[in-house]
Design a binder for these strands. Structure first.
Lengths: 352, 352
DNA sequence: TTGAAAGCGATACCAT
DNA sequence: ATGGTATCGCTTTCAA
């Protein structure tokens, strides 16, 4: 193992100069800094992590807690983990995984042992037990998601309410007076609150504008293809021609396939908006107007907030809601038929 | 922060006694060890991670490298990550995530800085670049998967060849002389070698026993439901009545739904074996005979091998293949019709 | 602009 | 069975 002493000797300077040259915390003449850098690369020097943690006040590690429940949607979750890891590395931090069933134990342990500089919390539940721990430990903690009781907590999340408003507004502006929200699984409305935030905002906005908004979930636990299929059939039979989809990719696919079966053209006969999807909707059979949920944005902000706190910035604990962005792809009809007309011209067959 | 000094003072002993009492590396009288433990819990003492890493020769951290390519099947991957994390924690180790596009950089860094005690390699490709690095660094490395060039490498994996043999044997023993292997996606046969290991073993065994084995992949990149659907239809039309499924859950579901549509009863009219599935097949509509791929087994063994190396055991670098286990659920018919009979009694309609 | 040296908080060797 | 202390490799204050 190469130590800082060997680098110092090779460069003909003291170890403190090497340390400062590498950290940049003290000016070092261009000449010596060059010699030091040469020595570093020549010897393949890499500061000892343990020594750095002990002497410095930084471990350069973030903990990432993720309960990984059985109902977690793996692809979405992976996207967040990956985005966090990449954002952290860019700032010089590694990610330590805390997947314990009892995330509490892990959080306390890494905080008490000073293993990590900050804690990032993923997959936040409304009544998350990690809230109490975050308050108890002195390690800076950032939630990616918003628990019910978020007083004095630092949180980052998409503004799901704004997503709901935006989606309803677009369809309403296009002339629809009724629309269908294809939501998440039943369990996700219980275990998280972001689906509710979108739903309630959409319902309120619809009520304000005198719009008839229907809502269905996409299965009990996991997304149930059959449930989605019949829900869509049913909605079409009842005259629905405008859809807001807040769901996983499978649900999008089922919706599009039913529309295709019926010969309904998206952007002409029916309108569809994908709301808060974290996958690439442009890979679908039909491109959809999308209000994307970009994990990178949330995760980068979370990492940034953590780093800034470590750098001494005195940030107020608050919720950071990322404003939604609307990506048009022509899936909303410009001047649709009114749904009552639709109903008139096409008598609803019995479902099934 | 509570230090070992405070614990020592509270317990009225020296710091070395505290250290030994906690590590158990030296006998300590029951009386004093009790006082020390009391002090530890009273003060909520947790040894400083950095100090431990520097003074001891253990960081109590394992690195887990996972390239996370776009075609990675998220649920399967998550199962492995989770299993590894749990196995490691049980042995007192945390998991540091290395998800870099260039896993090389991360591996070199954590090895050189002595951030981790060992490296676990996930999602192994046939020509994995991490093989070279594993050979270069002195940090013990265990592959979960088997690269093409595994000379001098420590690897753990399911014995996929044995899985293939076993599946073919069961169906052959049941009297089938032709069978269909529903395989993985095309890309997985290129990016990994475990699908090939199963396939080739099955083909060889089939050839030995004079059995007609067909094989199809389940889509180009991601599993394509339509592709699977027509492949199964086609196979049935050609008289196939025995299936080996080496694929994700979606593929199982499509197969079962086609069989149901046709009114073919699993275990009577047709036989199905699920081979090397890492999800819970008992949750399917029909219970299937399964040769499961249990991530826990591979991951626990990998962790165990890493720990034993750290404990000084001089293990020879070799491949550890886990023998398959056959879980019967009655999905293989006991005395099936010969496929030629089947063909005779049911003229094959043209597909589609 | 640079160097010397005092910690950081454990582990583990050498004594007693 | 227990205590004293050198040591790990770095960061950072204090001096020059």
């Amino acid at each position: 193992m190469t130590t800082i002493h060997e680098v110092a000797k090779a460069a003909g300077v003291s170890i403190s100069t090497v340390s400062y040259a590498l950290s940049g915390k003290r000016p070092v003449s261009e000449k010596t800094r060059q010699r030091i850098e040469d020595a570093v690369t020549a010897l393949g020097y890499q500061p000892d992590a343990g020594a750095r943690m002990l002497a410095g006040r930084r471990t350069h590690i973030f903990a990432l807690t993720e309960p990984l429940r059985a109902d977690t949607h793996a692809p979405t979750h992976m996207a967040f983990v990956l985005a966090t890891a990449i954002a952290a590395r860019r700032r010089g931090y590694d990610i330590l995984l805390l997947t314990d069933e009892q995330a509490s134990e892990g959080m306390n342990r890494v905080a008490a042992s000073r293993l990590v500089d900050a804690i990032l919390v993923l997959d936040v539940a409304p009544d998350d037990e990690r809230v109490a721990i975050a308050r108890a430990v002195s390690t800076p903690t950032v939630f990616i998601g918003v628990p019910e009781d978020h007083n004095q907590l630092m949180c980052v999340d998409m503004d799901f309410a704004a997503v709901g408003d935006l989606a309803v507004d677009r369809l309403a502006d296009a002339g629809y007076n009724r629309m269908m929200l294809l939501g998440q699984t039943e369990v996700s409305y219980r275990r998280s609150n972001f689906p509710r935030r979108l739903l309630h905002a959409a319902q309120d906005r619809a009520a304000e504008r005198g719009i008839d908004l229907d809502w269905v979930t996409t299965g009990e636990i996991a997304t149930d293809t059959a449930v989605v299929h019949s829900a869509v059939e049913n909605a079409l039979d009842r005259g629905h021609r405008a859809f807001i989809v807040h769901a996983v990719d499978d649900t999008h696919e089922v919706l599009l396939s039913v529309l295709a079966e019926r010969g309904l053209a998206v952007g002409t006969d029916v309108s569809v908006i994908s709301a808060a999807a974290s996958f690439d909707t442009t890979a679908l059979a039909v491109k959809l107007d999308t209000i994307p949920l970009v994990p990178q944005r949330s995760c980068e902000l979370a990492v940034d907030l953590a780093v800034r706190q470590l750098d001494g910035e005195r940030l107020v604990p608050e919720i950071h809601l990322l404003p939604p962005e609307y990506l048009p792809f022509g899936s909303v009809a410009s001047s649709p038929l009114d749904s009552s007309d639709v109903r008139a011209e096409r008598p609803a067959p019995t479902a099934d």
